[in-house]
Simulated scan of single mutants.
Amino acid sequence: MSKKVTINVIAEMARVSKTTVSRFLNGKFDNMSEATKERIAETIAELDYHPSRQAQALKAKNSLLIGISVADISNMYTSRLLKGISDYFQNTIYQVLIMDGDNSIEREYSNLEKMVTERIDGIILQPLVHQPDHYQLLIDENIPVVQVDRYTEPFTWPAVVSDNFQKSLEVADLMKSKNYEEIIVLSNHINGVSSRMNRYNGLKTGIENTNITIKLIEIDDNKDWQNTLQSMLELPTKKALYALNGQVLWEIVRFLKKHHIAIPDDVGVIGYDDDMFADMISPEITSVSQNPQEIGRTAAANLMQIMNDETTLSKTIRIPSTIQMRESL
C-alpha cells in the first residue's frame, strides 16, 4: 500500500518545514523565496496531493471557498482573467466557485445570494452595477471583496484594473500624430461600466484643445448602429474607429469587410483588447493589449492578503497595458 501523502511528507521531500508547507497551502507567501515556492509546488504536483477541503474547513471553521462573479464568461478576456485567478489558488487550500452573470443584473444578484449562502470566505467581483449599495445590501461587511476589471463608485472595496484612462490618453496622442480629424468610438453601453467610462474619458481628455471631434455609437440594443456608422463614414474627413473592447472590434472588422471599406486607406481602426487575434488578419489591427491573467492573479493575491492579515489595501491597483502598433492606423 502506498504511503499516505501528508504535509509532513511534502515538507520532507521539499526540504522545508511543515509550517512552511502549511503557509504555502494557505497562500501566505510573505518572506518565502520563489525557489521555495517552486520546490513545494513541484513536490505537491509530483505526489498528486489534494488537501481535504472538508477536513480543513472543519478545522478552520470556514468554507475554504472563494466566490468569483464575472460579467460574461463567454468573453475571451474573462477566460484569461479566470486563468490568472485559478492559477493562484491552485495549490492553496481554497477552491473557487465561478458564477456567470451573463450581463444580467438579476442573475448576478442571484449568484451572489448563492455564494453568501455557501458561506464563502471571500469574493472576487467583476461588477455589473456601478453603485456599491446595490451589493452592500447583500454582501456582509465581514466578507472580504476585491473588484476586478471594473469598480463601483464611491469606492467600497479595492479593485485591480487596467490603466484604462492613461492608455486612452496615449491613444489620443497617437491619433493626433496620425492627423486624424474625427474619431468614432464604438462600444457596448458605457454609463455605469468604469472600464469603458475611463477609456472614453481618457480619449476625450487627450484631444481637448484640438480640432479633432469624437462621436460615440453604443451598439447595445441599437439595431441601426451599422446604418449610423455607414452614414458617418461617408463624410469627407480623415477618420479612425476606436472599439472599446475586443468583441466590438470584431463587429467593426466584419462590417468594414462586408461593405468593402479599406483599412487604413478609407478608415483607421484601433481596438482596446484584441482577444489575441489582431495580428492574424490583414491588415494587422493596432490594439491596446491588456494583461488579464496578471489582473486576475493580482486580484487573487490581494484577496488572500486581506483574508489572512485583514490588511487595508490601496483603493485601486492598475496593471499596465501596451499599445501594439500595427498596420491599421
Score class of each variant (00 low, 15 high):
41 A>R: 15
56 Q>V: 11
64 L>V: 07
58 L>K: 12
41 A>L: 14
56 Q>R: 13
94 Y>K: 12
26 N>K: 10
21 V>M: 09
91 N>Y: 15
62 N>H: 09
26 N>C: 12
65 L>W: 06
19 T>F: 09
64 L>E: 04
65 L>R: 03
28 K>F: 08
46 E>A: 13
47 L>G: 02
18 K>Q: 14
74 S>K: 13
69 S>E: 11
57 A>S: 14
41 A>W: 06
42 E>C: 07
70 V>S: 01
98 I>F: 02
84 G>D: 02
89 F>K: 01
34 E>R: 12
73 I>S: 08
96 V>H: 00
66 I>A: 00
69 S>M: 05
66 I>M: 01
52 S>T: 14
97 L>Y: 08
89 F>C: 05
40 I>W: 05
75 N>T: 04
101 G>D: 06
61 K>T: 07
36 T>C: 01
29 F>V: 09
66 I>D: 00
18 K>P: 10
33 S>Y: 02
43 T>L: 06
59 K>H: 13
39 R>G: 02
99 M>P: 04
20 T>W: 07
91 N>T: 12
51 P>H: 14
62 N>R: 15
74 S>G: 03
19 T>C: 10
54 Q>I: 15
77 Y>T: 08
31 N>M: 12
44 I>P: 04
29 F>E: 12
51 P>I: 11
67 G>C: 03
67 G>W: 00
88 Y>G: 01
50 H>S: 10
68 I>G: 02
63 S>T: 07
78 T>C: 02
80 R>M: 10
97 L>M: 15
21 V>Y: 05
28 K>Y: 08
18 K>F: 10
88 Y>N: 02
80 R>Y: 11
30 D>Y: 06
73 I>M: 12
92 T>C: 08
87 D>W: 07
66 I>P: 00
63 S>N: 05
73 I>P: 03
27 G>N: 02
56 Q>G: 14
52 S>R: 09
102 D>C: 10
76 M>G: 02
34 E>V: 09
28 K>W: 04
83 K>A: 01
55 A>P: 05
23 R>C: 08
39 R>F: 03
54 Q>Y: 14
63 S>H: 04
93 I>H: 13
18 K>H: 12
50 H>I: 14
27 G>P: 07
57 A>I: 09
17 S>I: 06
57 A>K: 03
82 L>N: 01
80 R>Q: 11
94 Y>M: 06
72 D>S: 05
